[in-house]
Computed example of a mutant assay.
Amino acid sequence: MDGFQTPKPKRPKLDYPHGDVRPELGETIQVAPGIEWVSMPLPFSLKFINLWLIDDGDSWTIVDTGLPLPETRSAWKSLIEARITRDKPLKRVMVTHMHPDHVGCAGWLCHKYGADLWMSRLEYITCRMLVSDTGREAPKAGVDFFCRAGWNDAQIDNYKERFGGFGRGVSQMPDAFHRLADGDTFEMAGEAWEVITGNGHSPEHACLYCPSLNLLISGDQLLPRISSNVSVHPTEPDADPLLDWMTSCEKLLERLPEDVLVLPAHNEPFRGAHARLRHLIDGHETGLSRLKGRMQKGPLTVMDTFTSLFGRAIQPDEVGMATGEAIAHLNCMVHRGEVVSIVGDDGVSRYQLT
């Protein structure tokens, strides 16, 4: 559920203490005392997701879970059942956010091993809401949203066919959860941890920070090589998630030390958080500047922005994600008072400089 390699300022040099090594399926690499790195496969371009198995002394905790694929469930069974005992059970499944590659196996793990689900409130509620769309017809609000973006009939038909697919990537969610909120503290791996929430990529993404280990489990909120997708969705067409995202990056700059070891959901563990966060902010500001430059030549539809934002042609299976991210940039400019949106007689929105 992550974004594109958009044209950005030069990427900073980061330190990767493990190089490009990653654990094999069903194996782990220890990255800190009591913290094991797990890697599970994904059936799309990112290929893998990083998950974390944590020794709490008298129990085990999992942070993020992977998609409910047969090979993922089999690998979890192998990893967990070699470790858990009656006196040392799987106690918690913690989920950074509600995207299926993170929450997909959470319900299955909780139900099978009697573990509690820990998650932020907005992520849990949003996940339950999206799962409930499975089996429904695509709503008119969604069709209208993508028509205003300039989608053609084939793209609209594809949206209708795929609507409700979220629930097929998520095992049955527990009916109760333990809430994670910004500033909460808890004990894990024998150390004190703090919750730092972020917004923009998802509603209330929870990062987990351990000052004594100088370590951050960042989920998708801070990745070293790709920028997380920041999108507007049909459920809130006037939202400004890009402002939320950049504000969250500033928040992490304030609350994290520069040399923190970041355990991201994708790519490899790294150091250099401050440089990477500034690079992410600057990259989006560069994208906004490019759009303003294009608009000096005339109004743009959402589809007209792709080349300026992403620097390449967008493949058919990427159009939905690209549309959401493009509208996020355009809405940010609207909220800043730099751009207005006018719906033409053809029902398509066009954006022009104020």
Rank of each mutant, 00 (worst) to 15 (best):
D2H: 04
G3S: 13
F4A: 00
P7M: 01
V21T: 07
Q30M: 09
W37P: 07
V38M: 10
F44Q: 14
L51N: 13
D56Q: 00
S59P: 07
S59M: 06
G66F: 02
E71A: 08
E81R: 05
R86D: 14
R86K: 13
K91D: 12
D101E: 15
H102S: 10
H102Y: 10
G107T: 13
C110D: 10
A115L: 08
A115K: 11
M119G: 04
R121C: 11
R121K: 14
Y124N: 06
T126H: 07
M129Y: 07
A138K: 04
F145V: 02
D153C: 00
A154W: 12
K160D: 12
R162S: 13
R168E: 08
D184W: 12
A189L: 10
A192M: 11
V195A: 06
I196E: 03
L215T: 13
Q221M: 15
L222P: 01
R225W: 02
S228M: 08
V230Q: 03
S231H: 04
T235Q: 12
L243I: 00
D244V: 04
T247Q: 05
L252G: 02
E254H: 01
V260R: 04
V262E: 07
V262R: 01
L263N: 03
N267A: 13
G272T: 08
H284Y: 05
M295I: 04
G311F: 04
G311A: 03
A313W: 06
A322R: 00
E325N: 05
N331E: 03
V334F: 01
I342L: 11
L353E: 11
